[in-house]
Design a protein around this nucleic acid. Sequence first.
DNA 1: CGTCTATTTGAATGTACTCAAAAGCGGTGG
DNA 2: CCACCGCTTTTGAGTACATTCAAATAGACG
Lengths: 193, 193
Amino acid sequence: MESNKLIDHFSKYIQLSIEEIELIDSLFKPKSLKKKEFLLRSGETCRTESFIISGCLRTYSIDENGFEHTLTFAIEDWWTGDLLSFFTETPSFYNIIALENPEILQITKIDLDQLYLEVPKLEHYFRLLIQNAYISQQQRINQNLSQTAEQRYLDFIGKHSAFLQRIPQKHIASYLGITPVFLSMLRKKLIQK
Amino acid sequence: MESNKLIDHFSKYIQLSIEEIELIDSLFKPKSLKKKEFLLRSGETCRTESFIISGCLRTYSIDENGFEHTLTFAIEDWWTGDLLSFFTETPSFYNIIALENPEILQITKIDLDQLYLEVPKLEHYFRLLIQNAYISQQQRINQNLSQTAEQRYLDFIGKHSAFLQRIPQKHIASYLGITPVFLSMLRKKLIQK
DNA sequence: CGTCTATTTGAATGTACTCAAAAGCGGTGG
DNA sequence: CCACCGCTTTTGAGTACATTCAAATAGACG
């Protein structure tokens, strides 16, 4: 029963029978990653969606000048993977790398499709999940359009204080869309207040 | 049968029976808007999700300095509304305004919840829909992080040439995250090449 | 045709970036 | 346990991208 945490998580949104829990258990495969190990490299096809039991991962792209841009940080009780690559079975643009030593549960597209058929309630769960993710992303876009780097940084440390300490500053800069050098200057300025 | 376009649209993703089509028909209410009319004003709760039969709408926020920031342009065969406000039944931060004279079909939360229960296939449809919207948003975030305003503008006119002519330039600027003045300068520079 | 709004142009300014170097910090091995 | 190495963060100076403010021009609509 490695997937207790996953079942607990599902149970917050939908009710599952014993049989359904056993089916879920049989389809999710556990995996451990070490710090700096890649879950996905750009150019590879993302074959699984991953539920995070513990640890932390970062999804990022690399632009034509070699700079990294962080799309998401994912921690326990969240999912990670590249949805576009996963569903279209085409090469991904993104890299997903372990920031700590995560324990995850993975499911393949074939197994997830089967699960949707056998447990339609999960379609409801995943609709709600993606809907919430969509809403968060929209808020991030709105912030990027309407706020300065300083405001976005203050908002970030307010919202994500839980894993601030766990992430190098340069990755926070790449999430906020600024350089590490400029973030350092912002912090200095804020401390002086 | 005002909702032919909606039924045609659903039918691209799922198969519907006559009874299901009739149920859908009965729950979606048609509405016409005139140019510059609001579908939603910030502070109001978004009571309906709207499918666009024809025309064009813009979703935007207004920041503390009074500047507008465009989150989405929505045209025929797409949906508009504020998901967060709609699902949580709380006041919206966004405004939705008609750029042309749109014809739309609206459904309330109660009716949509009922529809999900009676036609579970629609849960599948909406999961796919939101999933695609999520993927597009992620690409937009990645572009905002990794590209200059010039690259984003060129990409925008490439992707959205269909409705470029239908939208004032200042709204495109507010979508790209730049001022109308700077967009004008970019265009001048690009024409000179 | 006149009014209102959108776009363009120009000059001065500010926000964020680049490049380069120094300082700090964490892990590893002797 | 300390010394060293590599990586991250800080600091400073010069630069570039994008903004502000103001005014002129162009377009849209009644």
